[in-house]
Design a protein around this nucleic acid. Structure first.
Length: 426
RNA sequence: GGAGAGAUGGCAGAGUGGUUUAAUGCGGCAGUCUUGAAAACUGUUGACUGUAACAGGUCCCGGGGUUCGAAUCCCUGUCUCUCCGCCA
């Protein structure tokens, strides 16, 4: 969530930013509406505070009078206060109404895109930031998509998952299960080597946490909800890990705080069944290693670059062809100020699959989280939060087995062999 | 799941209706002293809101209530601890 004062002080910049998100002139009017609502809030607050001040003073005076035995004077003072009390509760009621309205409007505002973010309406407008290698692999015509390879080598089974749970819950078996575990360990080890602290968080979170990272109210429908206990299954480790620092005030010298964690991720993905979500392309439960960084505002964009470098190195070590897209304003997530998507090329499907999304949220999440730091002048400031997948497993597995298929079996990239314990999957 | 106790500042811990702008200790910060450090001593030390700066306002787990006045009394929710039961 943005701050009202930020809107006041950076109005032109906010307008420019929202235009990148394709706000119409009419939609932009909300900014002025919020500012004038806030003006009103302030003036009501002022008169409320004045009345409270008088009420407080009178109450103290009554205490004194009673102590001195001046009962009559005390009773008079009590009568004076009672009319004040009705005024106060009327003002309080007004404050509640206006604060709720202000909050509703503020919460509907997305983050302001960073100046480097391009205008654009659809994924077509995203900018290819980096691509590796320059020539895409070409497989023989007989090459199989990963769902057929899964049957051939018995490495995962979607129908079995449907039987015990429902569609979109894969069961990994044999070398497929081992490959899954190998990738998780490989990704975590790589992150730890880069200085990320390993976390194993809870897989369910309460409402406050879901609110802190912005899943509520923006993406509530995407989460599985356990009604009996009022808990949400996490759609990403970002939620519990970032919330470790909810309501925390850091010292400046604690930055950067770098964390990583492996968790399964649960996504309802409502209404997204169809032809190109076959196999592992889109599932309700998948494994992911996430990296989360809390950073000083002055260094967050540098950190974003370092995170891109880390994810790139994972892709190259797995010898997978990938590209990085800098998302345009129209395709960017609600809470993000700048997002880079990693896509892996799945050679049998001849498709790019998103496997990582690395974002800088600046203060947008920190404001909801009340995640702050103390700067040199002892004032508290909102920190910046960043996160990214490093990496999401299901689609990596899809691309890896498709791209590396041979007559003899699926070749395991060298970096992964110590983790799988085998060089070829057959 | 049952019974009992509890939730106060970074931490420990007083405070059961009116100078509480929350005692005191520890920790942190600054200073004195010292070649430097430690110790000792002195001062300082919560968050939010608000203002040009003051002032003012809100916050003692959350929500509601009683009262002129609530950390303190009442109702309710959540969580923690101890004992019992169950259990990987």
């Amino acid at each position: 969530m943005l701050q009202v004062n930020f809107l006041r002080e950076n109005k032109e910049m906010v307008i420019e930013g929202f235009r990148k998100r394709n706000f119409s002139d009419e939609n932009l009017l909300i900014i002025d509406s919020i500012i004038s609502l806030d003006d009103e809030r302030k003036s009501i607050q002022k008169s409320l505070d004045d009345k409270l001040s008088i009420s407080n003073q009178t109450a103290a005076k009554i205490g004194q009078l009673l102590k001195n035995g001046e009962k009559l004077a005390a009773e008079t003072a009590k009568a004076d206060v009672s009319s004040l009390k009705t005024e106060i509760s009327a003002l309080e009621e007004k404050m509640r109404t206006i604060a709720t309205e202000l909050d509703n409007q503020m919460i509907s505002l997305p983050n302001v895109p960073h100046e480097s973010v391009a205008f654009g309406k659809t994924p077509e407008d995203n900018i290819v930031y980096q691509e590796w290698p320059t020539e895409l692999p070409v497989l023989p015509e007989t090459a199989l998509p990963h769902w057929d390879l899964a049957k051939k080598y018995d490495i995962f089974d979607l129908e079995l998952g449907t039987k015990i749970t429902g569609a979109g819950f894969p069961v990994y078996r044999k070398k497929g299960a081992r490959l899954q575990r190998a990738l998780i360990n490989f990704f975590i080890d790589q992150a730890v080597e880069q200085g990320f602290e390993e976390i194993i968080p809870p897989l369910m979170v309460n409402e406050a946490s879901a609110r802190g990272t912005g899943q509520i109210p923006d993406k509530e429908a995407q989460m599985y909800y356990v009604e009996k206990d009022d808990l949400y299954l996490i759609p990403t480790a970002e939620v519990p890990i970032t919330n470790l620092y909810r309501d925390v005030i850091l010292n400046e010298d604690q930055f950067p705080i770098k964390m990583t964690g492996y968790t399964p991720c649960f996504r309802r993905e409502a209404g997204s069944y169809g032809a190109h979500v076959r196999g592992l392309n889109r599932v309700h439960q998948f494994d992911k290693v996430e990296i989360v960084v809390l950073e000083h505002p002055d260094r967050s964009y540098q950190t974003l670059q370092e995170m891109l470098k880390h994810v790139s190195s994972l892709m190259s070590k797995l010898e997978l062809p990938y590209r990085i897209l800098h998302l345009c304003g129209g395709d960017m997530g609600f809470a993000s100020a700048s997002t880079y998507d990693f896509e892996v090329y799945s050679a049998a499907q001849k498709r790019w699959l998103e496997v990582s999304s690395v974002s800088n949220f600046e203060t947008f999440q920190a404001n909801r989280l009340k995640l702050r730091y103390r700067d040199g002048s002892k004032k508290t400031q909102l920190a910046h939060t960043l996160n990214g997948s490093a990496l999401a497993l299901a689609r990596i597995v899809a691309a890896l087995i498709e791209n590396n298929q041979t007559e003899e079996g699926i070749l395991i990239p060298e970096a992964l062999q110590p983790y799988t314990g085998f060089k070829i999957l057959n």
